[in-house]
Design a protein around this nucleic acid. Structure first.
Lengths: 217, 217
DNA sequence: AGAAGAAACAGGAAAAATCCCTATTTAAAG
DNA sequence: CTTTAAATAGGGATTTTTCCTGTTTCTTCT
């Protein structure tokens, strides 16, 4: 029998089904027990402020309504720095991972991991204070190479208008008419924008515009 | 003691963490036991064809790689019509729900439901053969009002591949090379897809592909 | 007023996309 | 073994996009 006393957990995830079943799963691990689970960061605040019981570890979902993973984590590191937070997320998006780790997460778990990995992660966190899966680790290493994102270019009003219109099925001729400009002028905008974005064609520009919220779906 | 013998389940979900913990949760319900879980439809096929053991109920995730919920369900209703399938999904998108129900799902569960609801759903399915949560039911009712918009068109594998590639900066010539097809064939796909979507040009297609999650940003 | 720089506009041409119609070749069905 | 249907291609024309290089117009500063 191990003589270490079990570590306590709290789960924060809006998918109640996952949260509940995760609770069962973790309780089946030796040396770990889940105190309770909540559906978002705000609820967690309430609980922590009311409850005296502070968990050793928090499993924190990144994508939540009300108060998402970022905010919650920021608040936690500020108010309860001793709690070890493991981020839990669906996607292995580089930026998301980095964001969470920079804000103090002790690890980043993908939701499609094998349960054994979860237990391994929990044990690691208790022992070493952190855990990183191979996949996340490699994503991070890769991000070191991928030259830190060059700053976003600036756009003039007209260029933004153009981008928005170009993100529809209109032809440039129609866009010109819409903007009360010569097609050639619009072509000038196009060229400028392409250069700033370093894209080959209109598709690339549209993708950029969507990614950076200049237009919405 | 209930004298009914327990119903057997199989879980199909690529989120292994959810699948495993869900298994634990369900096994804790009286009268239900999980036989095993798999990560996608293809695996399920293998299992069913090998294993003699046919479950009473299958919990089927909609969004999976390899062989998604639609295909899997179609295959199931064709080959194992006696198995009751409950669709499990993150989003309450009307079209998705309808698609699954039309293909024979006995119910549609959102992943953020309360565990009690899950048990309730399982019990209902065993008793009545179907289950619909209030939320899904209301979504469906609403869809009766919201003038049924024309069905989403169906796409062939190649067309989907094409759409994905066309949602990048590649030219059609490059896409053709990538797909090992003549540019003319690719042009044929383009025309077909344009017609199905009623779009004027590639931009329209890309927007559609993004909206309907054929590609991600 | 005159110079400088930005914004608008244009010519010309190649590449790509779009459209329409037809013809194989292959796979499925009867 | 035909008949059909689907997938694959080709020809050829038009429009649109893309690129490169200029000119004109407007604004602003001194």
């Amino acid at each position: 029998m191990s003589k270490t006393k079990p570590s306590s957990l709290v789960i924060v995830d809006d998918h109640k089904l996952l949260a509940s079943s995760l609770e069962k799963l973790i309780n089946s691990f030796p040396n770990f027990n889940v105190l309770y689970h909540v559906g978002n960061g705000a609820e967690l605040q309430h609980q922590l402020e009311a409850h005296a019981e502070i968990p050793d570890i928090i499993l924190l979902d990144v994508n939540m309504p009300i108060m998402n993973g970022y905010e919650t984590l920021t608040w936690l590191t500020a108010n309860y720095p001793s709690i070890k937070v493991l981020a839990l997320s669906m996607d292995d998006d580089e930026d998301v991972i980095l964001k969470m780790l920079r804000r103090g997460a002790k690890g980043y778990l993908l939701k499609d991991i094998h349960p054994d990995k979860l237990e391994e992660a929990l044990i690691e966190v208790v022992k070493n204070g952190y855990y990183h899966s191979e996949k996340v680790a490699s994503t991070l290493l890769q991000s070191l190479h991928t030259e830190r994102e060059e700053e976003q270019p600036e756009f003039k009003e007209k260029e933004i208008t153009f981008m928005k219109l170009a993100s529809t099925e209109m032809t440039y001729k129609e866009i010109a008419k819409e903007m009360n400009l010569s097609p050639k002028t619009v072509d000038g905008y196009r060229q400028d924008v392409f250069n700033k974005l370093k894209v080959r064609n209109r598709i690339g520009m549209v993708i950029y515009a969507l990614k950076h919220k200049y237009v919405e779906l």
